[in-house]
Computed example of a mutant assay.
Amino acid sequence: MKYLINSVLHWYQQSLQYFRHLDGIAALALRIYLVPIFWMAGQNKLMHFNDTVAWFGNPDWGLDLPFPTLMAGLATSAELGGAVLLALGLFTRLVSIPLIITMIVAILTVHLPNGWQAIADANAPFANAQVLASSEKLEKAREILQNYGNYDWLTSSGSLVILNNGIEFAATYLIMLLALIVLGGGRYFSSDYWLSRYMNKFRK
């Protein structure tokens, strides 16, 4: 029996040695997922930069942040530059830091007052008063569209929902970036890996 257990453990350890060559796939998947998100966010800020600056600085309908032009520039640069570097897997751990800061600022200044849910769903966990109140409004909107619009056509691309704009998505991206600080760009699939191998040749 002891011999059998030892054999199984030995086989298990040997199998893990083969799977370690695939450990870069997790980091690659995280990077590929995040690239279009940050690229589109940065592009949107850049294309409407004056509006972005106004939104960052306005105390009435904006974020009321200090130095709005600088803050908007930093956020735009972090998202566009971050998307490019994540796509390449270059300086992955380093570039994750400003993106994490961007996500924390977004959570605290934009999303936190709306609670957890990104899409309002009164039946889901963490439904706050704002989400619960949205159910009646959503039902009324459906009723209006069913009576006065082509409801089947309007919903043919997806269900009618109310955007709650909570922290759910930003928190998810934050967690993914924290994972990339630990994982790095990933074995084989990142510029970081090949740059590290190249640099190690000169250290020997």
Rank of each mutant, 00 (worst) to 15 (best):
L180A: 00
A122M: 14
M71N: 09
M40F: 10
N50V: 09
E143R: 04
K45C: 04
K137Q: 15
D64W: 04
N114S: 08
F189Y: 09
N150K: 15
G24S: 06
S134Q: 12
T52L: 02
N58H: 11
D121P: 06
L99R: 02
I167F: 11
D60T: 14
A129M: 07
Q43D: 05
Y198C: 07
N58D: 15
L99Y: 04
P36Q: 12
L145I: 11
L178T: 06
I5F: 12
K45S: 07
G57W: 02
V182Q: 08
L30K: 08
L80C: 03
A41E: 04
L108Y: 10
T102C: 05
F38Y: 09
R20H: 06
W116Y: 12
N147I: 10
N200Q: 15
V53I: 12
S191K: 07
K137E: 13
Q117W: 08
F56E: 00
A133D: 12
V8A: 14
G166W: 05
A87P: 05
G24E: 05
A122T: 14
P113E: 10
G186R: 11
L180S: 01
L90H: 05
L177P: 04
L30A: 08
A127V: 07
T155F: 11
I25E: 11
G81Q: 01
Y198W: 15
M199E: 14
M71G: 01
K45Q: 10
W55V: 00
W153H: 11
Y193H: 10
E79D: 08
V84F: 04
A87E: 05
G81D: 03
S134F: 12
D23K: 08
A83P: 00
V84C: 01
A27S: 15
L163S: 13
A72S: 13
I181A: 05
I167Q: 05
G186F: 08
K45Y: 03
N147W: 01
Q146M: 13
F126A: 09
L9Y: 13
F189R: 01
A106N: 08
I175K: 01
S96N: 04
N165W: 11
I32N: 01
M47G: 04
Y193V: 03
Y3K: 15
A106R: 02
T102F: 10
F56M: 13
N6T: 12
L160M: 13
A124N: 08
L22M: 07
I100M: 10
L160K: 06
F67K: 08
R20A: 04
D64V: 03
L28D: 04
E139Q: 15
T76Y: 05
K140V: 09
N58W: 03
I107D: 01
M199Y: 13
R203F: 06
N123P: 06
A87H: 01
V110Q: 09
Q13G: 12
L80P: 03
I119V: 15
A171T: 05
F19C: 09
G42P: 03
L154Q: 10
W116F: 14
L28A: 11
A72Q: 02
Y3I: 14
N123G: 14
L70H: 01
L9C: 13
N6S: 13
W11G: 15
I97M: 05
A118H: 14
E79H: 02
M1N: 05
L86K: 07
Y3D: 14
L108H: 06
V131C: 00
K204E: 10
W39S: 02
N44L: 12
M40D: 06
S159P: 06
